[in-house]
Each structure stands twice: as structure tokens, then as C-alpha cells.
Simulated assay, not measured.
Amino acid sequence: MARSLRLQVDEQILDRAAGLFARHGFAHTSLKALADAVGLSKPGLLHHYPSKEALFEAAVELGRARSAQVLERSERLPLGVERDRRAVELLVDFALARPGLIALASRAISTLGADSDIDPRDQGLDGIDRLVFAIFGVDHSTEDTERLVRVVGMLSALAVLSLAANHGDVNAVWRPHIITTCLDALGHRGPGRSPSDLSQVEA
């Protein structure tokens, strides 16, 4: 039980830290700001993670692990509308629970092809971008530009909406609408479909 509680606390710390890293980048996120965000003193935070670098790496690793889980569960279905829907549902649930980690994944996508003066920790974020693209069967070198743009747009919308939902404590109410918006971004909203059509998650 104690181990489970510790893991939950660690995830909460990493999620809040990930949100700051996503917003400001590694270089411009101070240890004091991180400690304030997670509700600890600097010595308290350093008790959990010995440095800002260690905290960043742990957040990236958790984001990568969760993205890999979504990929594993999504790739049971062939590429297509049903896989996109399943992946979006899984990502939305993850994003509503851990919006900072989704924001960090979104930053991974947004820094692709960035100038070389961007901190290397913010470029690619150790493969999160590749995992997220793999969920939807694309990579950043694909010739299918429309699909690439739609996936990037979907992830960006997901990051913004999940953060807004968490600030307003409206996760349950917003969830079906976020799913619909993300599927819209991927080009899958059919005529006459209502948000409630998408509210049932596969068991």
C-alpha cells in the first residue's frame, strides 16, 4: 500500500513538473518554480529527485512509458478509424489524469525541426514524439503531410483542452467533447454524429 501511494505521489510530482517544462522549456524552468508547482520546498523536492536534470529525465521517462502503453493497446487494431478512435480515447483519459505529461509530449512534437539554439533536452524529448506518431502510424518524415498535420493538430488540441479541463474541474463533462474535437482534427467526424456517440470507451 505504501509503495502504491509513493508511486502516485511521484506521478503527481512528475506531472506538475512536466507541465512547467512544457510551458517554459528545460533551461528556463527554475528549481524554485518546480518546487512551488509541486508544493514542496527546494530541499523537499531534492529529497525526491537530486537535481533538475533528474526530475526532467524522470518526467520524460514516465511520459515515454505511458505513451508506449497507449501504443501497445492501440496497435491491437489495424490502422484506420477504429484505431484512431481507440487511441484518442486512451490519450484523452491519460491527458485528463496527467495533463502536464501530455503537454510535455506536445512540446516534443512542436520542437521538431527547431533551431539548434533550442536546449537539446527540448528537442525530441528522448523519443516521446516517435511513440506518439507511431500510435497513429506516421512519423515526422512522412510524405503524407495532411495526416502529419492532423496528428500534430490533434495532440495540440488535446494538450490545451486537458489543461483547461483540469483548471476548471470539468473532466467528466468535457471528456466526450474533447474526444470529438480530437477525432475532428483527425478528419473522422461524420455527418450527423453527436459528441455522445463517442462517449463510450471500449472495455
Rank of each mutant, 00 (worst) to 15 (best):
P43S: 03
D36T: 12
L45R: 02
F56I: 01
A59P: 11
K32E: 14
T29G: 04
R64D: 02
A27I: 08
A37C: 06
V38H: 03
S30R: 13
V60E: 12
A65W: 02
L45H: 07
L46E: 13
G44A: 09
E53N: 05
S30V: 11
K52P: 02
A58R: 03
V38T: 05
K32F: 13
S51L: 05
A54V: 02
D36W: 06
A59N: 02
E61C: 00
A54N: 04
A58S: 09
L34E: 06
V38D: 02
A35S: 14
L34I: 13
R64N: 05
A59R: 02
A27W: 05
R64C: 00
Y49W: 10
E53C: 00
P43H: 03
Y49I: 06
A65D: 07
K42D: 14
L31E: 01
S41P: 00
P50D: 12
S51E: 11
G44Q: 04
L45E: 04
G44P: 01
L34K: 02
S41M: 09
H48P: 00
L46I: 11
A33R: 10
F56M: 01
L62A: 03
R64S: 08
H48Y: 15
P43M: 09
H28R: 15
Y49H: 14
L31I: 14
H48I: 08
G44W: 06
P43G: 03
L62W: 00
G44M: 06
K42Y: 12
G63C: 08
A33Y: 04
A54M: 00
